[in-house]
Nucleic acid binder design. Structure first.
Length: 482
RNA sequence: GCGAGAGUAGUGUAGUGGUUAUCACUGGAGCUUCCCAAGCUCUAAACCCGGGUUCGAAUCCCGGCUCUCGCACCA
């Protein structure tokens, strides 16, 4: 079994994610976050949000359903709602419309396109065959409405921010640079969604749109100036501080700021060092709006998978919306008026969660598995276990549990089965600490705290647990162990 | 979407025309005075869906759905 298979098996069994709508056979490209997965995802989102707030970001929450006009301006409509035709002989693919230019017909459906191609005996430009198949190539889901314009489910959350740019800038009292962010769902009608959380048709993204003045230095100080593995599109792989990469002109200072921010978020959730790298897109890989793009990639069992895309979109989006909407989206500073540029770090929340699980899964010598998740993001921060279900041990454990749960709700209680079985259970879901109440606890109010990765234990006083401070996004039990 | 393979309790599986549908783990209740999935008892839980062939289908055939692998797609 590969690591990925092991993670998927464990995730199904223990409740991280499940196939959606499975009693009806499931629906490909859609997954449910199961109870523990929800908590894990929340941790990732919390780390994302905390890091952005730290740099003064402002947030927006816009609808999933978006009118066609928006995507006409953004270029998505033109680029991603085609009818494709494929030559049955040589397999080359074309836009059906361009093959039919001479006939003057514009097909409305893929069936119609196929009929037209066959009826007109259109030849394949590559091999000359006249055998065609045709299919829809709509990356965007179209919504049926009884009247009015066409609506789509958004393929990215970004457009909601661009269309509210004026309002957001006003809120920000006209100041640039302005970091805006939106957590939300994106929808893409993938032809063949695969690999669990990696490619879904409905997915969670945390997109950031940073508006800036390209002629100014907008973010002079890097958040952490991390040392990272860099894969530029022209040079060999290297390991540098991001400030050095800027000094070497591999990347602009403003772009580097957001690469560093992305690395910080990954670090907070437990992905760092050799398990991540930053890779620059090749020219032909760039999307229609991007001037430059670096992906933060995570090592998923030997394969590098994009988890965050940090694109320099230039002023493409605002220029287009200015043009299509007729609204003035320029910013005036002194005597200069300009359309702001955008750097967009787009965080794939689901992919980050999956990368976390794959990087966390470990096997002990006895073959039992455990998830070495970062203590701050584990679904449960700590488990409370009475050694025995009697003699007042259960009562004492419950009392402490109920008190601590008011302060840190990310705790769980387990009194079923042998103590070893319960440790194993918590190990498998990545709970970093287990607090066990034994007979000595009744005498001197001490308990043992066990750490997941080492399985070693310490004895501490119950009052130290009750005195733990609550810190948002942090696992307070770490203080008891270190 | 194409080609190939596959779908049996929560998980992993046995079963190739007639079985009370196998086994293990997990889950639940309890016993054993119990700190690393020990043992014992009891218990819950499955043939992806729909058609067809047949006296009889988990098993054969067709269609759908889903999964895996290649190809393509991944803005």
């Amino acid at each position: 079994m590969s690591k990925v298979e092991e993670v998927i098996e464990l995730a199904k069994r223990r409740g991280f994610f499940w196939q959606a709508f499975s009693i009806y056979g499931g629906q490909s490209g859609f997954l449910n976050y199961a109870p523990l997965g929800v908590l894990l995802k929340d941790s990732v989102i919390e780390a994302w949000k905390r890091n952005l707030l730290r740099h003064g970001a402002i947030f927006l929450d816009s609808p999933n359903v978006t009118p066609e006009d928006v995507f006409r301006a953004s270029g998505h409509l033109e680029r991603f709602s085609d009818i494709a035709a494929r030559c049955r002989k040589c397999g080359t693919k074309f836009k059906a419309e361009s093959l039919l230019t001479e006939t003057g017909s514009i097909p409305k459906t893929s069936d119609e396109a196929k009929e037209l191609l066959l009826a007109n005996r259109v030849k394949c430009p590559v091999c000359g065959s006249v055998q065609w198949e045709s299919y829809d190539f709509n990356v965007m889901f179209r919504i049926q409405t009884s009247d009015g314009p066409n609506l789509y489910l958004r393929p990215e959350t970004a457009q909601g921010i661009f269309t509210d740019f004026r309002l957001l800038l006003n809120f920000n009292r006209g100041k640039l640079p302005m970091i805006t962010a939106q957590l939300g769902k994106g929808f893409r009608n993938e032809i063949s969604p695969r690999q669990g959380l990696i490619r879904m048709r409905e997915f969670n993204m945390g997109e950031v749109e940073a508006f800036l003045d390209r002629e100014a230095l907008n973010f002079p100080n890097l958040p952490s100036d991390s040392v990272v593995k860099l894969v530029p599109n022209t040079l060999a792989e290297t390991r540098l501080k991001l400030s050095e990469a800027v000094a070497n002109s591999m990347i602009t200072q403003d772009h580097a700021f957001f690469l560093d921010l992305a690395v910080d978020v990954l670090k907070d959730v437990g992905l760092s060092g050799d398990s991540i790298r930053l890779r620059q897109h090749r020219k032909e890989e760039l999307s229609h709006y991007a001037r430059d793009c670096w992906d933060a990639e995570a090592d998923i069992d030997g394969e590098w998978v994009e988890v965050i895309g940090i694109a320099d979109r230039g002023n493409y989006d605002l220029s287009r919306h200015q043009q299509f909407s007729g609204e003035n989206l320029e910013v005036t500073e002194g005597e200069r008026s300009f359309v702001p540029s955008v750097i967009e770090p787009a965080f794939g929340i689901d992919r980050i969660c999956f990368a976390l699980l794959v990087n966390a899964i470990r096997k002990r010598e006895n073959g039992y598995k455990y998830l070495s998740l970062h203590p701050d993001i584990a679904p449960y921060h700590c488990a409370f276990l009475p050694l025995q279900n009697r003699d007042g041990l259960d009562k004492l454990a419950e009392d402490v549990f109920f008190q601590i749960r008011k302060r840190d709700p990310r705790v769980t209680f387990d009194q079923s089965g042998s103590i070893g079985k319960r440790y194993a259970r918590q190990d498998e879901i990545g709970t970093p600490y287990c607090i066990t109440f034994d007979y000595q606890s009744l005498e001197d109010r001490t308990v043992t705290i066990r750490e997941r990765d080492t399985t070693s234990q310490k004895r501490i006083n119950i009052d130290r647990i009750l005195d733990l401070p609550a810190e948002e996004g942090r696992n307070p039990f770490t203080r008891l162990y270190s």
